[in-house]
Amino acid sequence: MLTHKDSSTYKQIEKAIKYIDENFKSHPSIDEVAKNIGMSKYHFIRVFKEYVGVTPKQFLHSVTLNYAKEHIKESKSILDSSLDIGLSSSSRLHELFVNLIGVTPKEWKEKGKDVEITYGFGQTPFGEALIGFTDKGICYLGFCDNNKKDIFQRFNQLWENANLIFNEKLANEYLENIFIKNKKYPLFVKGTNLQINVWKALINIPNGEIATYSDIANVLDKPKSARAVANAIGKNHIGYLIPCHRVIAKSGAMSGYRWGIERKKNLLEYEINKDEQDI
């Protein structure tokens, strides 16, 4: 990051952001944006990242997506949104959403309508859990104590219009594969851009290691956003697989954990001991 920002360069970056905001529907190339502010392409990419925290392409993608999310709430069809945004087809809009937030525009707009989710309760080394999964991947994993009704309600609210299919046998098979056989599954997530970026950062924390909320904020080039990061972590709906249990307060305190502080300690101890046994 730059420690002392040159005012003239800042004005150029400000001009670039304004240009992207005003022209994102026509999908300007990075060369076009750089030329508009009088910079070479590669110098522009480097300086933009230093000032804004993301690359120009990521910023353009984000602006397009945020507009799309708002526009599809009002439009009559996904195709209308695609044409208004300037994409070549509705499949391109579909790709945009899938790459960044894991759900299609239709699923976002209709809160999971027509999405088929198999779910069930089963046992894990850390107590009973509710798991939900689709043909795209696991979409929910929450631990239960004496609150199965509450856990199911959270799951149901997240995917309130989905077609839920109860299958306890298959749910137990999935949980055994995850916790005993260490099988990897894709994750089908639903969240904001920030939440998904935070969750991606969590997955990159090595097994048995810990990080602070500030560490995650720094990884995302948002050093002053530790509180927002903590809020995003609190919205994680796939426990264990998106390892929010590996994040602690800067003071070293375990801090909050949706599924209980004791379970958080047990998860960390389990991972640390497992790593030592594998050495």
Rank of each mutant, 00 (worst) to 15 (best):
V189Q: 10
E50S: 11
G234Q: 03
D6G: 00
F44D: 10
F97G: 05
E276V: 11
D278G: 00
I210G: 00
I261R: 13
I72S: 04
I138C: 07
E128D: 05
I131R: 06
R246Q: 14
F179E: 06
G132A: 07
N218E: 15
N66L: 13
I20C: 06
I117C: 03
G137H: 05
K41R: 15
L220D: 04
S214H: 09
I72R: 11
H43P: 00
H43Y: 12
Y140Q: 08
K76V: 00
S225F: 06
L164V: 07
I233V: 10
K200L: 05
I178W: 11
K109I: 00
N172Y: 01
I151L: 01
I72Q: 07
G256K: 10
N207E: 15
V219F: 02
Y119A: 12
F152E: 03
Y240A: 06
T55Q: 09
G260K: 07
G112Q: 05
D215T: 12
G208L: 10
Y257A: 09
K149W: 06
C244A: 15
S8M: 06
E32Q: 08
P186W: 10
L241C: 10
N193T: 09
I272Y: 07
V189M: 10
Y185R: 08
G142P: 11
T3E: 08
Y51W: 08
D114K: 14
R258Y: 09
K265G: 00
E173A: 01
T134Y: 04
I205L: 07
A16H: 06
S75C: 13
L267Q: 05
S214Q: 14
G260M: 08
Q153G: 03
K250S: 15
K18L: 08
N147W: 02
R46N: 13
Q277T: 09
S40L: 12
K57Q: 12
H61F: 11
V52G: 05
L220P: 00
H27S: 11
E271L: 01
H94Y: 14
V63N: 04
F44Y: 15
N182K: 15
I117T: 09
G239K: 01
L65K: 03
F166K: 15
I279E: 05
T104W: 07
H61N: 15
I78G: 04
G112K: 04
V229Y: 02
M254L: 13
H71P: 00
I279R: 03
V54E: 12
K18E: 06
T9W: 04
E14H: 01
V103Q: 07
R154E: 06
